[in-house]
Amino acid sequence: MSVVERLKDEQKTAMRAKDKARLGTIRLALAAIKQQEVDGQKTLTDDEVIAVLTKMVKQRRDSISQFEAAGRQDLADVEAAEVVVLQEFLPQPLTEEELGALVDKALADSGASSMQDMGKVMGLLKPQVQGRADMGAVSGLIKARLS
């Protein structure tokens, strides 16, 4: 079952359960996906849908840190609840060992030897880790291995 189909099924389930918070988050996700499809004039693949959901999670995490810095824990809690719902539709996150193995393999496959080769390595890794690892952490891991 595709990610969009899962979202639509969960939307129906949330409607039946009268779970307004979950329903609202799922509707936001479906609206963001639909907007991308309209903008690009094409139907999104599962990988592209995962990229949209990953972006939404990142935005909410940024909002959480800003709300907490401003002393608005009530708004931060709402954003945190949305993150939990969105993460249900993302693939299982990679463990440290799995991520390290993928980085080592990408370094070997690309023949990277210096920081100038970082773009090649990121290009190889991005499709494999999209939605499963924080790209900032991946970048830091690559930098550590190349230096």
Rank of each mutant, 00 (worst) to 15 (best):
D104C: 10
A21Y: 07
Q36W: 05
L44E: 09
A32Y: 08
A32H: 07
V78T: 12
M118G: 03
K8V: 03
A51K: 06
K55M: 09
M118V: 14
D9C: 05
E37W: 10
S65L: 13
D109Q: 14
G131H: 05
S113W: 03
D134I: 09
K105P: 00
I50M: 09
I26M: 00
T54W: 01
G123W: 13
I33W: 05
A101N: 11
A137V: 15
M122F: 12
I33Q: 02
E82W: 01
S147K: 14
D117G: 08
K55I: 01
L7A: 03
G111F: 06
L125I: 10
K18C: 03
V49K: 03
L90I: 07
T95P: 05
I142F: 03
K42I: 08
Q73Y: 13
R27F: 04
A112T: 03
S139A: 13
G100P: 08
L53Y: 06
R27Y: 07
E68P: 01
Q130N: 13
L7H: 02
V4H: 00
A70S: 15
L44T: 07
D134C: 10
F89T: 04
L107R: 03
V85P: 00
D134Y: 09
Q116V: 07
A80G: 05
T45W: 11
V38N: 14
E96H: 14
Q87G: 08
T25R: 00
L23C: 02
Q87I: 07
M1L: 11
M118A: 12
V57N: 00
E79Y: 04
S63A: 15
A29M: 05
K20G: 01
L94K: 06
T25C: 10
A106T: 06
S110N: 09
G71N: 08
L94A: 01
Q36K: 14
Q11W: 13
K42R: 15
A76W: 02
G24A: 10
S63K: 08
V83C: 05
V129D: 01
E5M: 05
G136V: 04
L44F: 09
A21P: 00
G40M: 08
E5G: 00
D134K: 06
V49E: 06
M122P: 09
R132K: 15
M1Y: 08
I142Y: 00
T25S: 04
G131R: 04
L99W: 02
S147V: 12
V103P: 01
L90T: 04
A21M: 09
T95N: 11
E37Y: 13
K12D: 10
R27I: 08
L53M: 11
A70E: 15
K42V: 07
G111E: 07
E10R: 05
Q66K: 14
K8R: 15
A144H: 13
Q41F: 10
L30M: 11
F89E: 02
K20Q: 10
M1K: 11
A133H: 04
V138Y: 03
I50E: 06
A32F: 01
Q36P: 01
L53N: 01
Q92R: 12
I26R: 00
A101Q: 14
E88L: 06
A14C: 04
T13K: 13
D46H: 10
L23G: 03
Q128E: 15
D62G: 11
K55E: 14
K126N: 12
M118K: 12
L53E: 02
E37D: 14
T43L: 14
D77S: 13
V4K: 09
V138H: 04
